[in-house]
Design a binder for these strands. Structure first.
Lengths: 185, 185
DNA sequence: ATCCTCATGTAACACGTTACATGATTAC
DNA sequence: GTAATCATGTAACGTGTTACATGAGGAT
């Protein structure tokens, strides 16, 4: 039953997207951006490396397509084995822990060496970006609203919304405190 | 003035930690875990690669130390040039955007292929981990409470706290909805 | 004319993780 | 006594990012 070769999350993500229809690498890249990028980025080069790997495993089947004006391309579709592998992965209860990195937080950690005005500007900018993202996710969530088929997709978008809201609230919370610290000195 | 060679955030993080006192690579690794790991992980091997690089740049100075029972080691300290480079980086207003990855969210995105019970278990587990993390951060934040020197460190810990709180609230929010979806079918 | 975007990918390099090594001490 | 932890690192490999390539079509 179990597939011998263990493949990383990125491979399953590509495989999963190919379940939505056959696509070229280029299409996958665009689709990633529109769907999972906010919790799982995959860039172009990586996609193009994953596709042959999935093909070697027999999880997808690629076909070369000639085009006139545009460069020739290769389109891929899930195989039955690919679908099985995907479902098996989905149903295994394990998942790697979340990864989060923030250069802003690194700078904040060392901010005692920082010019207070610069810190203030950076936090302002950070907040503004978060507001923009929050608004985007709000629109997305509202757009998917009541469609029961998209409940899971909506749930992931909702995470985006909530986490940006939390970020905004956090900036406001610490701005007050850091402001005070500056006065005290 | 400006340093010609641009180095990544990880290098500055190591450099910054070496500002807290001279350390071996091993010490840096432990310190990372106790301080910045929740928004900027750096593993052992990476630390050991950064140290010679920082030394080549003249930002730190390493000294070999003989030990009797323990393996010999090399301890590093910030140089004046290193400190300048760090401050310059801190005061530049740029920062790379946050990166976030979550295999759980990838699985959730494709969860229409998933056994509902498994999804339920995964979300339960995810929530439990978030609760644990939240509690840890709560203790940390409370521990650093009123010390003005640690305001910035406290701010980063507070981000950990708030984001885990948001995660917990999000799980509760979507659990209700997904439950309903299941009934409707 | 020139620059930007679409549409395909490849190549090189840097970052990040896992596995390997080694010996002393501490815990059970 | 055996296993885990401390205390140092190194080597190998896999992931992820940036730069390079190429030509058509549309915008200014």
């Amino acid at each position: 039953m179990g597939s011998a070769s263990k493949i990383p999350t990125t491979s399953y993500a590509v495989l999963g997207l190919l379940g939505l229809g056959q696509m070229s690498g280029y299409d996958v890249v665009r689709l990633v951006e529109q769907t999972i990028a906010h919790f799982w980025t995959i860039n172009k080069s990586h996609v193009y490396r994953e596709l042959p790997r999935l093909e070697d495993l027999g999880y997808v089947k690629g076909t070369s397509v000639r085009q006139e004006r545009l460069p020739d391309k290769r389109i891929y579709k899930q195989t039955a084995a690919g679908r099985r592998a995907l479902v098996e992965w989905l149903n295994s209860p394990e998942y790697e822990p979340n990864r989060f990195r923030s250069e802003l937080l690194v700078k904040l950690f060392f901010a005692s060496e920082m010019d207070p005005q610069n810190l203030k500007n950076m936090l302002k900018d950070y907040r503004e970006r978060a507001v923009e993202s929050r608004d985007q996710f709000e629109r997305i969530v509202d757009g998917l609203s009541s469609d029961p088929q998209s409940a899971f997709i909506r749930a992931t978008a909702l995470m985006g919304l909530r986490s940006h809201e939390a970020t905004i609230a956090w900036v406001d919370e610490i701005s007050k405190v850091l402001q005070m610290e500056r006065k005290k000195r």
